[in-house]
Design a protein around this nucleic acid. Structure first.
Lengths: 347, 347
DNA sequence: TTGAAAGCGATACCAA
DNA sequence: TTGGTATCGCTTTCAA
């Protein structure tokens, strides 16, 4: 430890150690070093050993720059997150998603390039540049919108991509987590606890995942013969959920509400309580996501728990597969599950 | 629009267009193309024009790979975020911080490589590899701990770095946002509204920013002649704030509490209310950060608003300056400010 | 099995 | 002002 700049035996004094140094030290050609260190055939076991040893002694780490230029790969993938610059708070999904992505990339010596953009136009521009200067070998397509131009763009750019929870006929490889069953279970629970009519606080309807949740809510209601209550956007935010209170409260016949995410559910609950509408006594409220916070608030939030980390991991796996082989099978992670807590009544 | 892969006039058919193509097209040497496109002297205005035109016609975008290898730069910087894999939810700071970083990097054609690590050892390893394979030209040192080994590590690795809110004698360039004044203002407000004793819900004391806030709380109390109330860690989480309730409630003499971040303040408020301790009637509670949520909860949260986006922007500016010139002046962003809302009494 | 040499796509130096 | 060429650090033929 301490403050010396010694990084082990043979640590570089000033210059960085390159493949040439290793070759010299081992008394072989650089091509042999390359083959040996990449476990390619064509090197005798004896020389391979000598090379590996020399590399270790010198503390050799191949330069990604040389590797990239020669290997025609950036060894990096890109994620562009579009956020209103005034509200740059990342929702909980991304932390876990990125964690999952990273877990897979790390094993393969790939890196994640993260970009933030303010609007759709800038988002497209980011993808163009990422592809244009060959900074990444592929990208994630997240938070897809209806008719999202990005799916066309990546084809045009010939940029490998993986979509997260896209629509059924998405042209790029996708990773999906089914939540239809969980929402059906939720509505079923509502039905069996005496609710007759269920409202929905959705996300902005330009987002695919907002639409998908509305559809699932509708389908489940039909299935259980329940009435469709009010439908209002909660913008996926606490503030939006709060603002949706008026509409929900006006729909007095609805005794249960399914919110498109946990944050808006918390906002809605707060709004209802402020109006003296008790949750779950008068109205049951359920969210979607399964954020940490939902466990601790009062009443604890009933929700549909998704697995963003798993999704991220699978998405990364698919993306590298696509990059390496040009194509990949869609992947599904275990379905989201219903988590019953105290914000929905149980009788 | 549509689905053709036409990307403008002279769009690449299959091969990517390189500097050689541009040189041929303009009838000059590649060295002239390089000079012209990088606005370096030594090219007549006439040929420069011809080159620029040729580049545009071909849709030439210089490859970062070639540039990196030749220019000895990765044109990327790194951020390693350490998080418990079970709780990968990124706190609100990072969204805005990254947004700020990105805003600056984007203008300079740098990219951000984001990594997540599970523990301190893995974090160090990430930095080592980032430096080892020259994937980035510099890194951010965020959420510094007391005696954080990363400051020594970056010196050892000769890796340019910028620290965010480090201690006073930090050996690497730093960007700071003063919050001492805002905390003093908060405690002053407590004093002037009749409070005599103030408790503190801190963060884990291994974090520098947790310690700094404790120190500021203490100093301000002394300054205003107030008593030091209970001191308990809220882990920077809602759950932690909730758990801190017992200790705070036991310290009946404290009528005001300063929490080290907003999330723990919200947890504390929820905990107090559940015990029938009304906020702000019986106890005033203030947070730190200025998250969106604090505006909408009930009671609206009094807080110290920081500017993570500005901090990110400045940190990126400093980091690129360090990379380019080897050193940089520390930077300060405008001090954090006290935002009085309803969770603290005003009389 | 080994090594020499040709790229990869830029930058930069040095003659012309 | 130009253009030729070496160079960056690898991978990948292709001969020996």
């Amino acid at each position: 430890m301490g403050t010396t700049s010694d990084a082990g035996p043979g640590a570089p004094r000033g210059k960085r150690v390159t493949i040439v140094d290793v070759a010299e030290r081992a008394g072989v050609a650089i091509s042999s070093v390359s083959s040996a260190l990449n476990n390619r055939p064509g090197v005798s076991e004896a020389t391979r050993l000598r090379i590996v040893e020399a590399a270790a002694e010198l503390g050799f780490t191949p330069s990604l720059r040389g590797k990239s230029l020669s290997g025609k790969r950036a060894y990096a993938v890109g994620l562009v997150v579009q956020r209103n610059p005034d509200v740059l708070e990342l929702d909980p999904f991304f932390g876990a998603f990125i964690g999952g992505v990273e877990a897979y990339l790390d094993e393969r010596d790939y890196a994640l390039v993260l970009q933030m953009s303010a609007d759709a136009a800038q988002t497209l521009d980011r993808y163009r540049r990422l592809a244009g200067d060959r900074r990444v070998d592929g990208v994630f397509l997240n938070e897809l919108e209806v008719d999202d131009p990005r799916t066309d763009l990546v084809r045009e750019l010939e940029l490998p991509a993986v979509a997260v929870n896209p629509s059924a006929q998405c042209p790029v490889p996708a990773v999906r987590q089914d939540f239809g069953a969980a929402i059906r279970a939720l509505i079923g629970h509502f039905a069996s606890t005496g609710h007759r009519r269920v409202a929905h606080v959705s996300g902005p309807m330009n987002y695919l995942h907002a639409v998908q949740r509305v559809d699932a809510w509708r389908a489940a209601l039909r299935e259980f013969g329940l009435e469709e209550g009010a439908l209002v956007s909660g913008e996926f935010t606490y503030e939006g959920g709060l603002a949706a209170t008026a509409t929900i409260a006006a729909d007095a016949a609805s005794t249960a509400v399914f919110c498109a995410n946990d944050l808006s559910a918390l906002g809605l609950i707060a709004g209802l309580e402020r109006r003296g509408i008790s949750v779950p006594d008068r109205v049951s409220v359920a969210g979607f996501d399964g954020i940490q916070l939902g466990e601790y608030v009062h009443p604890a939030l009933t929700t549909v728990r998704t697995a963003p980390r798993r999704i991220g991991y699978e998405a990364a796996r698919l993306l590298l597969a696509t990059i390496e082989s040009g194509t990949a099978q869609d992947a599904d992670v275990e379905p989201a599950e219903l988590v019953l807590r105290d914000s929905t009544r149980s009788f």
